[in-house]
Design a protein around this nucleic acid. Structure first.
Lengths: 190, 190
DNA sequence: ACCTGAACACCGTTCAAGT
DNA sequence: ACCTGAACACCGTTCAAGT
């Protein structure tokens, strides 16, 4: 569905792209809670223009990140065909977790996404999650992962741990260690 | 040294207590990110008065929660004497985790506390953490908990998982389940 | 010694007026 | 069809002026 955007007047299209370019910069600096006012200001457009193109902060993030989600979904399929179930899941979760680190606040934004299933961000990231759910199910059938967890558990846990470094930057160095602990908790006892 | 407060003029003491009473209410409603302006307003004091008594949001939270932390520290000692190491730790972590739920945003506020070791909240919650660290060490010596985790890992993980329900309220029902998964990840393989 | 509340510099969101 | 920017209702923080 990505790319199925309605035709825009030339000036509108330019504004939209300008906003996205600037937003990528500002979100990289300030995180997903970046000031929308600041984005509009630096893009040289009025607040109304920003709101016309992206009615919510979520829509803006979706435009910024949707492609990345789609790529992660594709990666899941590739890993599934190339590795045994347990390894495929572990590898994918690793890539997912490192994706959480691209913007400050992103992990929390994604966890918040679980809430209302109406947003663009929810849909976009739901497709990625579905791909992860597939890997999870296979890893459970092969006995690598305990059977009493579902995809939401895994998503929530990685999201929570991924956001630790955002609330306490000094914990950033142990991020991978913490993720490992969580993933060990998901492993089946045998 | 809780309780070692300098003598205050009678009106100042009354204001301080009034602010604390109202803050407890407002934080219960809005969480740890509650509007300080709202607290001052509802307490019937000027903004300057609030700031004079509590220079930062952290100081206000400390006044609100310090007693609770102290009690949790005492509980650690009691549990240590009454149970084998693994059980004592598990029980204490359970109480700690449910304490994280008393105010919305509290878990995140505590994790943020790790950062600057100058705040009152840091000190206060450090005493509680030290008590937990004692239980952790014993549980590691008894072979119940894997040796490659420290108290900060445990604190960060519980804090992260404890804050999930704040970012995504719909996940509240699985909070205990998620905590169980994390604690299983801390258990030693045997 | 303590208190008040206006002032300042920010937000997000909406909407009348313009092209 | 699209854009602008002022208006509104909020913040946190500071500080001159008062008692």
């Amino acid at each position: 569905m990505r790319g199925m955007t309605r035709a825009l007047r030339a000036d509108a299209r330019r504004n939209r792209e300008r906003i996205l370019d600037v937003a990528a910069e500002v979100v990289a600096e300030q995180g997903t809670q970046a000031s929308l006012r600041d984005i509009a200001r630096r893009a040289g457009v009025g607040m109304g223009t920003l709101y016309r193109h992206f009615a919510t902060r979520g829509e803006l993030l979706e435009a910024l990140l949707g492609g990345r989600f789609d790529r992660l979904a594709e990666r899941a399929a590739a890993l599934r065909d190339a590795h045994p179930p347990g390894e495929a899941l572990a590898a994918w979760l690793g890539e997912f977790a490192s994706g959480l680190g691209v913007y400050r606040g992103l992990a929390a934004s994604l966890v918040a996404t679980i809430e209302d299933d109406t947003t663009a961000l929810h849909a976009s990231c739901g497709r990625m999650r579905a791909a992860g759910a597939d890997l999870l199910q296979r890893a459970q059938e092969s006995g690598d992962v305990r059977p009493d967890v579902d995809e939401t558990d895994v998503f929530a846990l990685l999201g929570a741990v991924g956001s630790i470094a955002d609330t306490a930057p000094s914990l950033a160095p142990r991020r991978d260690h913490l993720l490992r602990l969580v993933m060990d908790g998901l492993a089946a006892r045998r």
